[in-house]
């Protein structure tokens, strides 16, 4: 169970992007978070993945509140979340071949090359990347192919929750369908929970068990926000 309790977060403490938001993802549940661009849903997703420290509120993982964010979070807690971002170009180190990109989380936790290679082969097959593509660097593949690699990288540590932040916003319909199928296969096999952030209501409604609209998360926006009032 993943609970976000009273999260207030942003990049300027006096002017937070997210104010006092509550959201729960049960084990194995798929939750869609629907909102317009720039409303703060990506920030909330980064808080949930322990990548951004909120100014107030807690993230509770299986009943235990998270104590640290980014490097201050224990490795097991960080790797419990698989994150896929909107722009594959920005989320792939331009110097790494796709093979090394996918293997990076395994290498970072000290697993051997052989073990990493076996797991990479398995996942590459699952997301539909050929051997030949695995030897290329990010600038030599398309956005869709790169996003497949980024999804494989997120799945490598066998996360308990997947967080897809506008994962398919830049992609065509067939690639979108393929990536959604990969995520669903993984969830069926592992029982992982899912938080999908997006602005495509039709996709989220079909994909997720329930869809939460951003406006319902933010209580009494006009009253709670002094900067809007002035």
């Amino acid at each position: 169970m993943l609970e976000l309790r009273g999260i207030t977060a942003g990049y300027d403490p006096r002017d937070p992007v997210v104010r006092d938001v509550y959201l729960t993802v049960a084990d194995g549940e798929a939750v869609g978070l629907l909102g317009p661009s720039g409303c703060g849903k990506s920030t909330l997703a980064r808080v949930a993945a322990l990548l951004h420290r909120p100014t107030a509120g807690t993230v509770v993982i299986d009943g235990e509140p998270a104590r640290g964010w980014r490097h201050r979070a224990p490795r097991e807690q960080r790797t419990a979340f698989g994150v896929v971002f909107q722009q594959p170009r920005q989320s792939a180190d331009p110097r790494l071949r796709l093979r090394d990109l996918i293997a990076e989380p395994l290498r970072a936790s000290g697993r051997s090359r052989a073990e990493a290679a076996a797991r990479v082969g398995e996942l590459a097959a699952a997301v539909g990347l050929s051997e030949e593509l695995l030897a290329r660097r990010p600038h030599e593949v398309s956005d869709g192919q790169l996003q497949r690699a980024c999804l494989a990288r997120a799945l490598v540590p066998r996360p308990r929750w997947l967080i897809c932040d506008e994962m398919t916003a830049m992609l065509d319909a067939s690639t979108t369908a393929a990536l959604v199928a990969v995520v669903e296969d993984y969830r069926r096999e592992s029982g992982a929970g899912l938080l999908v952030v997006g602005h495509d209501a039709a996709l989220l409604d079909r994909w997720c068990d329930r869809t939460v609209r951003w406006s319902t998360l933010v209580p009494n926006k006009e009253d709670a926000s002094p900067r809007k009032a002035t």
Binding site: R46, L51, H71, R75, R78, T79, F81, V83, D93, P157
Partner: peptide, 17 residues
């Protein structure tokens, strides 16, 4: 601040790595 650093942190990479 690039997302790929976020991805590395989420993948369990240490500060040093």
């Amino acid at each position: 601040t690039r997302p790929y650093i976020d991805a590395a942190v989420s993948g369990g990479a240490s500060r040093w790595r």
